[in-house]
């Protein structure tokens, strides 16, 4: 929980965390090494006092995760968003079984999403069915730039992706977290194009599409799509980490999102362990929009808006009753405001 200067308690759900193993022992090839190198360079956007040594960054423990999120990081609940990356890592970068082992120790705090890859065909559909049941999946994380044999990516508009989206509904998954990576096929197109999210969101109005790092580096295209599709949400992972080195620029991003999507469709995420949530949350809770930006956003970044972003919007998508959750965690009860009829809850 985060306590404001005025003493108000804020419930926090981190919608984007990972427990990865990128250690040399798990790297399949040079790609595995380069992938974690790239993440480590992103990590350096942190304030210096939060830098991790490389070895820890490659593989950290369950205890590190629990401490960084729930003891020091103000986080009350968190959602695993695993990226498998089977071509780069022997046991996967993110691994559902590892996540599940930790969830079972802390079921009141952790939610585990799954993943699927349309290029796995029929076998993948069966696997999704099994995993949905085994791990009680409410959501999946899709990394469209994942490699698979000779393929270097897929689109949500591919016929097989459509089948996987249908199957997701069938097995009770409602939340599709989409991460656009840098290589999609065909290679001659814009590598970060988000248009396929538009297709999928219109074809599947019963699913929620949370676009991670709010479509960056295609924020303009993303905002445009989100205004057309009410079931498209902005995940703040990555964007939120800019708040330290580029506070003013981050304020501009929030302004855009508030203007185009409103306050009910933005979800906080730290992208742990690229960054720990502590400093991001401290700086975000401290952020105010200038009068000029607030006028552009049609919103102020009020405490009400911050509460929505930090937990309420995500709680709605994952059917989390914040008051009950507070009781379960032994926290002071935070009352939720009357829910607006937006978003599709997980039934």
């Amino acid at each position: 929980m985060f306590t404001t200067n005025s003493g108000e308690k804020i419930f926090v759900i981190d919608s984007h965390i990972a427990l990865w193993d990128a250690s040399p022992a798990n790297q399949r090839n040079r790609h595995g090494e380069e992938f974690i190198n790239c993440f480590y360079n992103y990590h350096k956007i942190s304030p210096k006092e939060y830098y991790w040594p490389r070895e820890k960054f490659e593989k950290y423990s369950e205890a590190d995760l629990m401490k960084d999120l729930f003891e020091e990081g103000y986080v009350d609940m968190a959602i695993f968003q695993p990226a498998y990356l089977g071509e780069f890592y022997k046991e996967g970068f993110g691994n559902l079984k590892r996540n599940w082992a930790l969830i079972q120790k802390h079921p009141e705090r952790l939610i585990g999403n799954g993943w699927w890859d349309p290029r796995n065909g029929e076998a993948g559909l069966e696997q999704l069915e099994r995993e949905a049941e085994m791990f009680k999946l409410k959501g999946v994380k899709l990394y469209t730039a994942d490699w698979h044999g000779n393929s270097k990516g897929y689109k949500l508009s591919d016929p097989w992706a459509q089948r996987y989206l249908e199957k997701s509904i069938e097995v009770g998954i409602k939340n599709i977290h989409v991460h656009k990576g840098p290589t999609i096929l065909p290679l001659n197109r814009d590598a970060f194009d988000v248009a396929d999210v538009d297709d999928a969101a219109s074809s599947f109005p019963d699913l929620n599409f949370i676009v991670e790092h709010c479509g960056l580096p295609r924020l303009d295209d993303f905002c445009w799509i989100a205004t057309q599709e009410p079931n498209v949400y902005a995940g703040l992972a990555v964007a939120s980490a800019l708040i330290h080195t580029r506070r003013k620029y981050f304020a501009e991003i929030i302004t855009e999102l508030l203007y185009w999507l409103g306050a009910d469709r933005i979800l906080f995420g730290s992208d742990y362990a690229i960054w720990v949530p502590k400093w991001i949350i401290e700086q975000f809770m401290d952020l105010e929009l200038s009068d000029e930006l607030a006028a552009e956003a049609n919103h102020t970044l009020s405490l009400e808006v911050k509460k929505k972003i930090m937990a309420e919007n995500c709680a709605r998508l994952y059917d989390i009753d914040i008051a009950k959750q507070c009781a379960r965690l032994g926290l002071p009860i935070v009352e939720e405001p009357v829910r607006k009829d937006v978003g599709v809850g997980v039934g």
Binding site: K44, L242, Y249, E256
Partner: peptide, 24 residues
């Protein structure tokens, strides 16, 4: 406001690229 979205994007790309390249 609408075409300003392009500038905000390029700004993001520029700052991320500069920071990653410096680390690299």
């Amino acid at each position: 406001r609408k075409i300003g979205g392009v500038r905000r994007n390029t700004e993001y790309n520029g700052l991320i690229c500069r920071s990653l390249l410096a680390e690299r």
